[in-house]
Design a binder for these strands. Structure first.
Lengths: 303, 303
DNA sequence: ACCACTTATGCTCCGATGTAGCATAAGTGG
DNA sequence: CCACTTATGCTACATCGGAGCATAAGTGGT
């Protein structure tokens, strides 16, 4: 009974805003994959190893980086040798975009998660399939219906943006994503829309998205995705893109201001298409003080 | 450049309430250690492996179990071969206590974290040492002072219960815990009180405690530590023990009731030493609905 | 029986916070 | 000059959270 021989791999979900779209850094295709690499003897720490691999494979330096989750189920891929995957979430800006790899929109990979303006993907392509799955097995129907209603916000339940992972897992279980074994060779129209990724990378992406959506509610991490100076409108767009939903503008501004998260630069951006907006800068000092207190976001406007 | 050969180990922080004391399951001594074991080929998943090892080593079945963090820094111990440690947080009740291992009070291991009634450890033994460390290097003093003030709630900053890990790490850096290399052979009175553990297990414990304190604020996990029926007073004691601080009783009750987390059993417990208390039962149904909404706790009574 | 003390429970006051909407400012392109 | 866009200021109102007062119903002691 000796310990299993194992190799460990680092997996990075690197997020940046490209225009109005939240994107993830991917390599190769099709299907695309996340930057990843094995843990080597020279690596000092897991975090350092992740930084190195991302830099080597994509030519990009990461700023913010936090550990996400460690996966090691036996059936992750077909192979008998087990790989432990330690995943990280990184945040950057797409500036100086000289690297390799492609910024791919989150919502091309998980389209049902974008409920900012158009919920037709959700209501037309996902919800019906999910409901059908629930009713498929009469003995489980009531339990499944409850679960669907909560994770997808059906039957009067609220849509909860940060249940990303629960939604993906339900779709996987239901065989509604092509990665699922039970979706083997299902035709495209019996499957939910959204580009697939290598292995379980789409699940890892969902884990990252879930974490990020949860985190922006209590830590000022949004600013890691902004350029040094920005208007409150841009900041709001960013938050809305991440959360996948619209926010009450006036309340958003008040909240940001009263928390003293930003300071006025005295400059204005006239390129807004409307009244020029003031430019602000993130007050990095608050990172010290706000270890716990965090950014609060106004809860979401009902439409 | 092949992948490093590695073994992976599961580490469990298993928590239960023994009387009024929150405890962690430990083995051996001195110094005590957390239940742990290598990942073996037969293990289906990391979580299953953790369950097995805990059961085998302590004779206890776990209920709630969630992944905490994965450690793999090169300098974790002296050895050149790297071990990846994947830590889990488990919650149980100490019922049917037939197993091996000892329930050891959190606060014998991290005494400064208990600010429920007596803060003398903190104010007499920890704060002065921490302050001294900050002032030790004039060039870093201002930065360090800020950090100390925030993590330990000095100079008007609020005490934040869930900064457990930050506090431990500061003490470690400052050489104020005997585990720290820079505390090598320091006499006991130049070190902060609290029993040490094997390796970095005390850091892992701090990670678990931090997670738990954060989590009880937004998920109804406290109930995993309660027996099936309990009074609101017992529930409050449990929360206070976990958070390490006192809570306003009336507000606590209001909060629990208005969230409909519990239901009245119709019975009473006359053993309270005062007016008999109603017995309640956790409404397991809410686990479904409350995936995100969570238990809110009233913030803390000022004394 | 009465008293001091303990825990349980009900209720109110008030300030902070969050939600929603109205109104105005200052640009753009026709 | 007008219609439209985005930015920004302000207010009314509901809800929530924090703190305290008051009462209920047990205990043990004299």
């Amino acid at each position: 009974m000796t310990a299993e021989v194992i190799s460990a791999e680092l997996l990075a979900v690197v997020v940046a805003m490209v225009g109005d779209e939240p994107c993830v850094l991917t390599l190769g295709d099709p299907p695309p994959r996340l930057p990843a690499g094995p843990l080597l003897p020279g690596h000092r720490s897991l975090q350092a190893a992740t930084r190195r691999w991302v830099e080597e494979q994509t030519g990009r330096r990461l700023g913010y980086l936090e550990q996400l989750y460690t996966f090691a189920d036996l059936d992750r891929d077909g192979s008998p040798a087990r790989t432990i995957s330690i995943s990280y979430l990184g945040l950057t800006t797409p500036n100086a975009d000289t690297g390799f790899g492609a910024w791919r929109g989150w919502y091309s990979l998980l389209p049902w998660e974008d409920t900012r303006t158009d919920t037709s993907v959700l209501t037309d392509r996902v919800t019906p399939q999910v409901r059908a799955w629930a009713d498929q097995q009469p003995s489980l129907a009531s339990e499944r219906r409850q679960r669907c209603a909560i994770t997808f916000g059906l039957d009067g339940n609220p849509w909860q943006p940060d249940l990303v992972l629960q939604r993906y897992e339900l779709l996987y279980e239901a065989g509604l994503v092509p990665e699922s074994p039970s979706a083997w060779r299902r035709p495209d129209d019996e499957v939910v829309p959204g580009d697939r990724m290598v292995g379980d990378h789409r699940r890892v992406l969902a884990t990252g998205l879930a974490r990020l959506r949860a985190k922006i509610q209590y830590r000022p991490v949004v600013f890691e995705l902004m350029s040094p100076e920005f208007t409150l409108g841009q900041l709001q767009d960013c938050v809305e893109a991440l959360a996948g939903r619209a926010v009450h503008t006036q309340n958003f501004r008040r909240l940001i201001e009263q928390q003293a998260l930003v300071e006025d630069t005295g400059q204005v951006d006239a390129e807004t298409g409307g009244r020029p907006a003031r430019l602000y800068r993130f007050r990095r000092e608050v990172l010290q003080v706000r270890q716990a207190a965090g950014t609060k976001l106004p809860t979401i406007r009902s439409r």
